[in-house]
């Protein structure tokens, strides 16, 4: 991780991609795509996050240990969400969740 210095060109490219993604997410929000709107918006947000984390934060060039810890954060956020939502999906007495 030391010694690696990202070039400004990488940062500029990342920045431009982020701005484009930002424009896309607004554009998509103006169209009614039914249930697809939310997944697309979230997918774009995840893409943007990936660019920030990998290049601005330099995780791509960081030590394996930092990479593992970043992954652990993501994993446990998924556990929190992933084990709670099934309860709501199977409760049947809540507005919005029951089939």
């Amino acid at each position: 991780m030391h010694g690696h210095i990202s070039s400004p060109a990488t940062f500029i490219k990342t920045f431009i991609i982020l701005l484009i993604l930002m424009a896309v997410t607004v554009l998509v929000a103006t169209k009614d795509l039914g249930w697809l709107n939310t997944p697309i918006a979230m997918a774009i947000a995840i893409c943007k996050t990936a660019f920030v984390v990998l290049f601005f934060m330099g995780l791509k060039y960081s030590s394996r240990l930092s990479q593992v810890w970043a992954g652990v954060g993501l994993l446990f956020f998924i556990i929190l969400i992933g084990l709670t939502i099934p309860d709501y999906l199977t409760r049947h007495d809540l507005p919005g969740w029951s089939e």
Binding site: F11, T14, F15, L18, V52, F55, F56
Partner: peptide, 12 residues
């Protein structure tokens, strides 16, 4: 987003 970009440049 801009501030993130300039922050990355500051580190550089």
């Amino acid at each position: 987003l801009t501030s993130s970009f300039t922050m990355a440049m500051a580190v550089w």
